[in-house]
């Protein structure tokens, strides 16, 4: 595209070429980490926290906080995208890959429902939480995950809008029939791909 005689000053904010292609349509980048909660912040003591796999599995599994912390962990750096239009680049998390939790699990399920303290739920295709795409994160930027951001642990599924990355997660239920969750039953998109701008039902 010819820039003609239009000076740099008239072209608005300078774009960072490294970030081209990383910002989904309709989003803006922010250095902040806004807090959006659908209810009060739960404060489950760690000695009463556990994480469960249940539903259509060959046997339910449960980890205490101590057992969960002993599982192999991964540190990942990803961009995150909230449906309220902010995106945040290069956020670093530590947690347990969902692949690790599902290792050896026999299931015919196609979907999962993440369930949380406070009653929040969100639904995802099983294939969107496997093969290195999702984690149960308990550290953010090297610190224990703060309660307002979902601590002690939240689901992290960075390739979908961030309401899918359920805060205060306590387990995954594997289901063969999809079961829309808290926001998915209130008009939000069932899948939520930010690069397809799937914000609402019908998008």
């Amino acid at each position: 595209m010819s820039e003609g005689f239009v000076s740099r000053a008239f072209r608005g904010r300078r774009r960072n070429p490294e970030l081209e292609g990383r910002l989904p349509p309709g989003q803006y980048a922010t250095p902040d980490f806004p807090v959006l909660s659908a209810g009060p912040t739960p404060r489950t003591p760690l000695d009463r926290w556990d994480f469960s796999l249940m539903g259509e599995v060959d046997g339910a599994r449960r980890w205490s906080w101590q057992e969960f912390g002993a599982l192999p962990s991964e540190t990942v750096t990803r961009d995150i995208h909230c449906v309220t239009k902010w995106s945040k680049f290069d956020t670093t998390w530590r947690g347990v890959s969902v692949d690790t939790l599902l290792a050896g699990v026999e299931t015919a399920a196609d979907h999962v429902v993440a369930f949380c303290d406070g009653g929040y739920t969100t639904n995802l295709p099983l294939e969107d939480v496997t093969d290195g795409k999702a984690w149960i994160a308990y550290e953010y930027e090297g610190e224990a995950l703060a309660p307002e951001h979902g601590g002690p642990a939240r689901l992290l599924v960075p390739h979908l809008y961030f309401w899918k990355s359920a805060k205060w997660v306590r387990g995954l239920e594997l289901v063969s029939e999809d079961r829309p969750g808290f926001w998915e039953t209130l008009g939000y998109h069932n899948y939520g791909d930010p690069f397809q701008e799937q914000r609402y039902q019908g998008d």
Binding site: L36, S37, A38, G39, P40, V83, T84, G118, G119, W163, W183, L186, G187, Y188
Partner: peptide, 18 residues
């Protein structure tokens, strides 16, 4: 009221039910 930007979640002040 919670959930400001995505919608309004109006909870009971006694038991937190939505």
């Amino acid at each position: 009221r919670y959930g400001h930007e995505m919608g309004a979640i109006l909870r009971c002040a006694t038991c937190d039910t939505a």
